[in-house]
Simulated assay, not measured.
Amino acid sequence: MERTMEYSLLQKMKYAQQLTAQEKHIVNYILNNPEVVFESTAHELAQATFTSSSTIVRLCKKLGTQGYPDFQLKLALDYQRAPATIPPADHPLTELEDVRSAMDSVPYLYHQALEETRRLLNVSVLQRIANWVKESGRIDIYGSDMNYYLAQQACTKWNELGIPAIAHNSPNMHYLNTMNLNVSTLSFVISHTGENQSMVDVAKILNGKNMNVIAITGNNHSSLSRQSTETLLSYGYNEQMRLSKMSSMVSVLYIFDILYMSNIRDSY
Rank of each mutant, 00 (worst) to 15 (best):
L93N: 04
Y110S: 13
L126T: 10
I163R: 14
Q72C: 05
L75Q: 09
L96P: 01
T85V: 01
L114G: 02
N169M: 06
H91C: 07
Q127S: 09
V123E: 12
D104L: 04
L186Q: 08
F188P: 12
A76H: 08
S144I: 09
E195Y: 06
H91R: 02
L121H: 09
L121Q: 04
H168V: 06
T178H: 15
P164S: 07
V189G: 08
Y148G: 11
A84F: 08
N182I: 13
C155R: 06
F188W: 12
A130R: 02
A89G: 00
P87C: 14
P92N: 06
L109G: 07
N169L: 03
C155M: 08
Y149L: 01
L77P: 05
M179D: 15
D78I: 03
G194E: 01
L176W: 05
L176D: 10
V125I: 01
H174S: 13
D140P: 00
L120R: 10
P83F: 04
Y149T: 02
I86D: 08
I141Q: 03
Y142C: 00
K157P: 00
L161F: 15
T185I: 11
D104G: 00
D78Y: 14
K157L: 12
M199T: 08
Q127D: 11
P83N: 02
Y108G: 00
P164D: 11
R138M: 03
H91W: 04
P88V: 08
V99H: 12
G194K: 00
S187Y: 13
D145A: 07
Q153W: 15
S136E: 07
L161V: 14
S144F: 11
M199K: 05
E195R: 03
L150E: 09
T85I: 06
W158L: 11
L75D: 13
S191T: 01
D201E: 13
D201C: 10
V200Y: 04
R119S: 13
F188G: 01
S144K: 11
A102Y: 05
N196K: 01
S187Q: 12
S170F: 14
P92S: 08
Q152Y: 15
E116V: 06
Y175D: 14
T185A: 09
S198F: 01
L176M: 13
Q152K: 15
A151N: 08
I163H: 11
H192S: 10
P107F: 00
I163W: 09
L114A: 08
A102W: 02
N182E: 14
K157Y: 07
S144Q: 10
G137S: 06
A154L: 06
D201L: 04
G162T: 05
S170H: 12
Q72A: 03
R81K: 13
T178D: 13
T193C: 10
E135D: 07
P87N: 12
R100Y: 13
P83M: 00
T156R: 12
W158Y: 15
V183S: 14
Q80K: 07
V99L: 04
I163D: 07
Y79K: 03
Q112G: 08
A167L: 09
S105M: 10
S101N: 11
P107N: 02
I163G: 08
D201Q: 12
Y142G: 01
A84E: 10
R119I: 02
L176I: 06
Y110A: 14
I190N: 07
D201F: 11
Y142I: 04
P83H: 01
A167M: 05
Q112Y: 11
R128H: 14
N159E: 15
G162V: 00
